[in-house]
């Protein structure tokens, strides 16, 4: 019925992006997929290994499987710990930021500073900071009699890494929450005053519900960040003592580059990737689902 020719030239503009995505992610990814199903005897000759690497990886009784499981649990423990600290702390910090006046700018810049430091520099700062010979923290704790040694004591290593992440990233949560708080119309606060609500009630009934969406985003970002963390703990502990702070990423790099165990590493990285994707997807569906409930 309709004989008009539609102008499809606009699609040409998308071509560069598609080419870029192809080269930056699709082709490298297919290489990894390739490795994960094959084995090699060296000299660049490969043969089909089927799901062998994956079976190996997901079976905790094998050496590789045990390594993977350990790193995975450590990673979840780490993400959970930093989220549990950073989210409430970020909200608390955001509540303390002034709402207007010249101090807003000063406070925001001060808070944002840790976000501007490159990851490896953060790692280096904390590595030096916690050294027992010259680091301020290490020496101070040592003198006060607290058993503290990052290179030998797992507890110490964890404490430093968690502390470092909190120091580095709480600012981001705080800034997001601050933006969320600013978006609450003044009328809500005025109404609450008129209704005779106390400070806790204002937080519980107005601020927290209005921050819900921002908090979900903050949690998603911090989960991804902490779950894929590499540079900072590697700089501070190198994954040690022993394997105690060896997260998935650190372990993976060790396996791929240190031991050139390409098949296992490929399967490892694909499963790692899948886990990250799954958790993000769960977050995403949760938020969109909650939103649609709002509209109804």
């Amino acid at each position: 019925m309709d004989s008009r020719v539609w102008d499809n030239r606009a699609w040409l503009f998308v071509v560069p992006v598609m080419a870029f995505v192809l080269f930056s992610s699709l082709i490298p990814m297919m290489t990894v997929v390739n490795y994960s199903f094959q084995d090699s005897m060296g000299q660049n000759s490969f043969f089909w290994n089927g799901p062998g690497w994956f079976q190996n990886l997901l079976d905790p009784t094998t050496a590789v499987g045990a390594r993977f499981q350990g790193a995975l649990l450590r990673n979840f423990a780490f993400s959970f710990t930093v989220l549990a600290i950073e989210i409430p702390l970020g909200i608390a910090v955001a509540l303390c930021i002034p709402k207007s006046g010249w101090r807003v700018g000063a406070v925001l810049v001060a808070i944002a500073l840790p976000l501007l430091i490159p990851y490896n520099v953060v790692g280096t700062i904390w590595q030096l900071f916690s050294r027992t010979d010259i680091g301020l923290l290490g020496v101070a704790l040592g003198r006060s009699g607290v058993p503290f040694n990052v290179t030998q004591n797992a507890g110490s290593a964890w404490a430093v890494i968690v502390l470092m992440d909190v120091w580095h990233w709480t600012s981001m949560v705080a800034l997001l929450c601050y933006a969320g708080l600013k978006a609450i119309p003044d009328a809500y606060y005025q109404a609450a005053r008129i209704d005779g609500a106390n400070r806790w009630s204002v937080f519980r009934n107005i601020e927290l519900p209005k921050l819900r969406k921002v908090l979900v985003i903050a949690m998603l970002l911090r989960f991804m960040g902490s779950f894929m963390i590499y540079t900072e703990p590697f700089t501070v502990t190198g994954g040690g003592p022993g394997e105690d702070t060896s997260f998935l990423s650190i372990d993976l790099v060790k396996m791929a580059l240190g031991q050139v165990d390409l098949g296992n590493a490929a399967a490892y990285s694909l499963v790692y990737n899948l886990i990250t994707l799954t958790v993000c997807w769960m977050f995403f569906t949760y938020t969109t689902h909650a939103d649609s409930k709002d509209v109804a």
Binding site: P185, A187, Q190, A191, R193, I194, G196, N205, P209
Partner: peptide
């Protein structure tokens, strides 16, 4: 405001979600 014993209704609905 809170010590004045007044009530106020605003332009846009203010409800506790």
């Amino acid at each position: 405001t809170e010590r004045r014993n007044i009530a106020q209704v605003f332009q846009f609905p203010v409800i506790y979600d």
